[in-house]
Amino acid sequence: MDHRKARETKAQAIDYARELTAQLVRPSEVTGGEPALAIGLAPQPDGSYVLAVRYRLGLPSVRSIARKLVAEVGQDVDVRRTGRIRTLADDPSKVRPRPPVVTARALGETGRTRPLRPGISIAHVDVTAGTLGAFVHKDGVVHALSNYHVLSGSPRARVGDVIVQPGPADGGQAPRDRVGTLAARVDLEAERDATVDCAIALLDDQEVDPRYPVGRITTTAVALGGEEVAKIGRTTSVTRGRVTAIELDDVVVGYGEELGEIRFDNQIEVESTGSGPFSRGGDSGALVYREDGVALGLLFAGSESGGDNGTGLTYINPIDAVLDALGVTLV
């Protein structure tokens, strides 16, 4: 299918999946009335698209919906089992510093780093640890970009709260390791649809090192599917992957007890092209970019399983949606 036809098929599939949900799914298997089944577009080698269908393991009714959907659409479907999808801050269920062994297992930058640069450990003073994804300009001033659940962490957080580098899970403390304050965020609410998980921190020191392994990244693009991508994160450092789905709707992501599960629309899926995972806990907030140095998205969540090597799938917000929502531009 071409892009237009694939989008039409996706819209019809979503309607059909919701009809089946009302008929077949038990209340305990849904979030806010919607199934744990995401639908988007999967790119093909010849430039065409098929329907991308993603469902959790362990939910028989949802698996049944996926099968009926495949039968309805025909051969043009890419079906994958994901397991649960969760945010990728370091152990989001806890907000206190973790034992040193957690830091020791990380391959990325978990120590105190000055000047600040992309890929290092950072977090709100009451969060564990995530990744500094990029530097952005807002009103001519340099800010650090990461996820809501990294730089804010909770609806209780307020603008002006302290941000530390490294994150508390890696030994960061205030005031010793303060690097700035929470400046803005896009709020997330329980049982409300979302498109981005992002926040920025106003930096105390405006002298930063904005370089990535591929050099500076100053431009963005819309993911079309099939792109070879990379990221640098606090936990798994530099990893490489491939965009396996775009425009995914109803991606259900777990945020712990306070926010529960939140559904995201228009998301991008990436699988690892190496022997290990593309991302793990602590990589939240990393910038995902093409190998020619063009930004595609902001990493925020991952699945327990899936992908060609079985190490899970990674989900990212489209970078233009992130920048627009915050009113910022890449440095």
Rank of each mutant, 00 (worst) to 15 (best):
249 D>T: 07
215 G>P: 03
135 F>L: 04
135 F>T: 04
277 P>N: 06
273 T>N: 03
44 Q>S: 12
6 A>S: 07
180 G>C: 05
217 I>F: 08
142 V>I: 15
318 P>C: 09
134 A>R: 00
188 L>V: 04
307 G>I: 04
265 D>I: 10
19 E>C: 06
217 I>A: 04
112 R>V: 11
285 G>Y: 07
66 A>I: 03
2 D>W: 08
301 A>P: 07
69 L>G: 01
73 V>R: 10
102 V>Q: 12
62 V>A: 08
7 R>H: 14
170 D>T: 04
241 G>I: 13
247 E>T: 01
179 V>P: 08
35 P>V: 08
325 A>D: 08
67 R>M: 05
249 D>C: 02
31 T>P: 00
151 L>S: 06
201 A>R: 02
30 V>F: 12
200 I>A: 09
43 P>N: 10
74 G>V: 02
327 G>E: 03
203 L>T: 11
275 S>N: 10
125 V>I: 15
169 A>G: 09
80 R>L: 11
298 L>N: 10
151 L>W: 12
146 S>K: 00
94 K>W: 09
204 D>Q: 09
283 D>L: 13
211 R>A: 15
93 S>W: 12
19 E>N: 11
169 A>K: 00
160 G>E: 03
6 A>C: 02
323 L>M: 05
290 R>P: 00
6 A>Q: 02
320 D>E: 15
